[in-house]
Write a protein that binds this DNA or RNA. Sequence first.
DNA 1: AGCGACATGTAAGCGGTTACATGATTCT
DNA 2: AGAATCATGTAACCGCTTACATGTCGCT
Lengths: 185, 185
Amino acid sequence: MPLEHAILGFLNFQPMTGYDLKKNFDRSVANFWSATQSHIYKALDELEKKGWAESRLIPQEGKPNRKEYHITGPGRVELRHWLVTPLPLPQVREGWLIQLFFSHESSNEEITALLQSRKEAIQTKLKTLKESVSTPKGTESNGLARAHRLWRLTLEYGMAYYEAELAWLDQAIEQVRSLPQLENK
Amino acid sequence: MPLEHAILGFLNFQPMTGYDLKKNFDRSVANFWSATQSHIYKALDELEKKGWAESRLIPQEGKPNRKEYHITGPGRVELRHWLVTPLPLPQVREGWLIQLFFSHESSNEEITALLQSRKEAIQTKLKTLKESVSTPKGTESNGLARAHRLWRLTLEYGMAYYEAELAWLDQAIEQVRSLPQLENK
DNA sequence: AGCGACATGTAAGCGGTTACATGATTCT
DNA sequence: AGAATCATGTAACCGCTTACATGTCGCT
């Protein structure tokens, strides 16, 4: 389960509360894995049950108490093991391809509009990705070079992916324009 | 919900049982949307509740009875509407990018092996896609040209996607090889 | 004798989302 | 006065998967 292991990954860096984790998710891995607060809290319970993390209460004044989780020995072992174990390719699930597939009764213009709207959505996604890669947040100090380059790689993956899709969309829009029109209707 | 609408798409072509639908899913859209039998039966119940499909029992001898579903008027309206309504981009969820992101404590060799194994998985996926595009199953007769070309487009999307990922993988493997090694360990 | 095609479903569980609930402090 | 930040969770639901259950016919 990537969520649990992502949490372990963060805890391996430093102890955190569920709240801290949420912020870290949003800041660093939201591009390829988002998590809701409630989901994170559930996962933390699970991690504690499995003995991969432990929590301790840190009382605070004026603010709610912190329930800080830290990774355990077995947690580190598990994390290291998971990190080098290839994940199976999950089932592809692209609803909009279903639309395209069954669009033979739509007009060429309707299909083009559908593809065009997807193109715009992808373009804005690509734009925000490009912005986040050009603003290197965080202190790029001493030992971080390695982690930083891996982080960049994940961003580059996203960009390559979106750019490939845009190229396909352009070509698909061209093809749809020259499709034989429907007879009936 | 793409599953329900995919079923409507098939029923719009001709009346079918859950069993027939499963076969059609496996044959034609499995590349981008797979469905289990149990899931299809549930969705058919739903469709009937919503009035988008109706069933009738066709007794058979020697074989189990067929419960054949056909699309209704409102079902057709719904399908046409859904087909031209852009879907929101779903959350990206790539577990293996989580692995890459947290791999800064793995050795360069371990990271390369991970990417390499993904490369092989993608290559076999691409190969089967290429095979299915070169064996044009089904009668390519008169009115099918339009539907057939849309089907081809979906396959081309898959191929473009996998090829882009392979290109990225090659480049990523190169980069990882030249990463500064870990100090500690 | 055993497997695959034909045909229908139920039940349990899992990963994830959305909505709800609470409450002090600090900044605008 | 109102919003944002800090901080924790529960409950309900949803889409989907996996496992289970049943039974005939025809082919090898």
